[in-house]
Design a protein around this nucleic acid. Structure first.
Lengths: 331, 331
DNA sequence: CTGTTAGCGCGTTCAT
DNA sequence: ATGAACGCGCTAACAG
């Protein structure tokens, strides 16, 4: 990497002349500007990012902490974040918490040293259980802005992007009811998460308001197949499934089919997922589309806006992203 | 963020004393070391990363360019990369090429300014078609090490991590043959990729050596369902499927089942995928496990090793990661 | 044992 | 129109 100093020596001018020329300063004569720019291009000069970071005390880099990159929802959000950040001239440093609080804390700690200008994150499962948010507070008192998406910490005052999980589940349930379903089963592998709890609430209220009986199956992801199979065998009256995580819906269809049921004639299924998973069943799973990419993009927008107005202490915003029910042949 | 300068002023010592004290220099008396460390902890002092980057002209950051984060194989590799990098004290800046050459070039260009110490990447689909590798060359001539994994550029001399795609497909085919399969269909959505071509070769040779007839279905991912269905309807003799991408195997099972075939009695299926996708069919798909996390970890190891010996020009290595056939109930 | 100086690469005064 | 000097935060060489 060639430096200004070296360019200056080659042309026998001063470093500051080079600096000014490269930024088209009116102080420098057009001819020398041309000369300097030519040699800069020739040697493929690029301003050293580390030096700029130090000088400007900003890095144009956002720290992103993702709980689980194998979850297609988070993968999509990351995609949205990366795209928008790239468009706005920001880089992202990605950390994966793997749902542990320890890694989440460590990531924040390690990057809170001038490596990033702020954090975009979704709270790790473990952190949602312990409800410990000291590391988030440390972040803010460190003057590093925070944007939380999807899974947020209630007691932290920062920008947030969420979907209306209650409403989403309520509407999805009503959607099944509108299909004349009388025994709708809710399947959840995420009952320990804030979003999971809200979805269950939405389901229960919809069920209640339509005077139906609720059926809830709470399971661990690893034993999903086994438990769903068992449940559907013992409860043959189930004619609708609302899967509030992203994988149980497809499994539900496949298991129901294996049991000889016709989907959607005998049983309707809808899940919180997206096309990339919905296509792994026949018929394709209907979904509550959470617009993951959008969530990512909006997170970056919030972050960049806040970085621009670092001094002016505007109030934290919470943006609720609308969901959309995408009907496919499973309902 | 408090600086050394400020700490120094508080204790009325010089900045270099603070610096030395914090690194336990024997030049400083134990008592002042203690004093300085205490106040440093009190004010939560952290060395400014930008300053260190500038001083050491290294960032302890690796640029990672992933073609498609929704592909679980790449998601897993990223997981491995992140984990190993984190263990070794490195951060990663992640870019997504979305399979385009333009974004791949842009990412390299943007980060080749002291933002990262090197790149770990898998070549974008488009780049594999155009065979243009000027941006990779620029990288190397810029003295930024390159590690390519899975999809590599043949004409670039750098460290590489691959699986033996030829052998993997050959063995997977023989595995099906050992199950008495006589009409094995190869399904591919990645015939334009180097890895896809090698897998087809492996399949063809295995088929030939066992005097069977080959059946190849090359399709676009978007129309996979439709085309596979069509093919299986017109070719009822197919009794085995080798899916060389990560999604067609599950689809194959589901479609065969929908057509009334018993898996694996009537038809055996094996795919290049992993547990996270294999579980979306009944029975679960058997897979050629590519040890994605391992590939990620090894990539980081290669990179870090090369960064350590920047001066000594050791020859580029190509590491071949062994694959493993994981039989599940679909074969 | 502690302090002064210099320099990493850059942009921004302030002089000339 | 050009150059010299300074500082961002840190470490290392050199003085005392």
């Amino acid at each position: 990497m060639i430096t200004m100093k070296e360019l200056a020596k080659k042309l026998d001018v001063s470093v500051s002349t080079v600096s000014k020329a490269l930024s088209d300063s009116p102080e420098i004569s057009p001819s020398t500007i041309k000369k300097i720019k030519e040699i800069a291009k020739l040697y493929n000069y690029k301003p050293n990012q580390a030096a700029l970071n130090l000088k400007n005390s900003e890095t144009k880099t956002i720290g992103v902490i993702i709980p689980d990159i194998l979850n297609p929802f988070f993968a999509k959000v990351l995609h949205g974040i990366e795209e928008e950040a790239s468009n706005l001239g920001y880089n992202i440093i990605t950390s994966l918490s793997n749902e542990t609080q320890q890694k989440e804390e460590q990531s924040i700690e390690l990057l809170s040293n001038g490596s990033v200008d702020g954090f975009i994150l979704s709270v790790a499962e473990e952190t949602q259980l312990t409800k410990n948010s000291d590391h988030f507070k440390a972040c803010l008192s460190n003057n590093l802005p925070l944007v939380m998406f999807d899974r947020v910490a209630e007691d932290i005052s920062c920008d947030k992007i969420i979907i209306d999980d209650y409403k989403a589940a309520y509407e999805a349930t009503e959607f099944l009811i509108s299909k004349q379903r009388k025994h709708i089963l809710l399947i959840s592998t995420i009952d320990n998460l804030s979003v999971g709890k809200m979805r269950v609430k939405g389901y229960l209220d919809a069920i209640k308001n339509h005077s139906q009986k609720n059926h809830i199956l709470t399971i661990d992801k690893k034993e999903a197949h086994h438990k769903i199979l068992e449940y559907l065998i013992s409860n043959t009256n189930i004619d609708g499934i609302l899967a509030i995580d992203n994988s149980s819906g497809v499994k539900g269809i496949n298991i129901a089919t294996a049991l000889g049921k016709k989907v959607p004639k005998d049983i309707s299924v809808i899940g919180f997922a997206n096309e990339s998973i919905a296509c792994y069943s026949i018929p394709k799973l209907s979904t509550v589309n959470q617009h993951a990419e959008d969530i990512g993009k909006k997170s970056v927008n919030l972050m960049v806006e806040r970085l621009k107005n670092k001094d002016s202490k505007t109030d934290p915003k919470t943006i609720v992203v609308p969901i959309k029910i995408e009907e496919r042949s499973s309902t």
